[in-house]
């Protein structure tokens, strides 16, 4: 078993990096690996639980919530969260934490491989 780390810097609804990140994280969990993810910049929009969008069957936030419920550790950059008016992540899905770049430094340390998307 290994640990796979992610840095996700783009939000949902404009770019598809979130889908790639979620798909890879799901595949890693399926194989029994650990997943760590740091949401940076617009990446912090991914776990907002108020998302609705008619063209998507599954909302990004539900994919991230499912990852967290399966044991993925997901941490959002607090400065980025507050810059976007997300108020310390009060509207985040369960399991996603708000932290800071020191958490990302720890993810870098813990991860056997790191993917940036």
């Amino acid at each position: 078993m290994a640990t796979l780390g992610f840095l996700l810097t783009l939000g949902p609804f404009q770019f598809e990096n979130w889908d790639t990140a979620a798909s890879l994280a799901e595949a890693a969990l399926d194989k029994g690996h650990e997943v760590r993810m740091f949401l940076y910049l617009d990446g912090v929009y991914n776990p907002v639980k108020l998302q609705t969008f008619p063209d998507l069957d599954v909302m990004p936030k539900d994919r991230f919530a499912a990852l967290a419920s399966r044991g993925a550790k997901i941490i959002a950059c607090g400065i980025c969260v507050n810059a976007r008016g997300l108020e310390k992540g009060k509207d985040y899905v369960e399991g996603v934490k708000v932290g800071g770049l020191p958490d990302f430094a720890e993810i870098v340390a813990e991860s056997d491989s790191l993917i940036t998307l």
């Binding site: 290994a2 796979l4 798909s23 890879l24 799901e26 595949a27 890693a28 399926d30 194989k31 690996h33 056997d112 491989s113 993917i115």
Partner: peptide
């Protein structure tokens, strides 16, 4: 597929 990509990123 994504499963193979997970293998590759962890092996390299």
């Amino acid at each position: 597929d994504y499963g193979k990509l997970v293998d590759l990123v962890l092996e390299n």
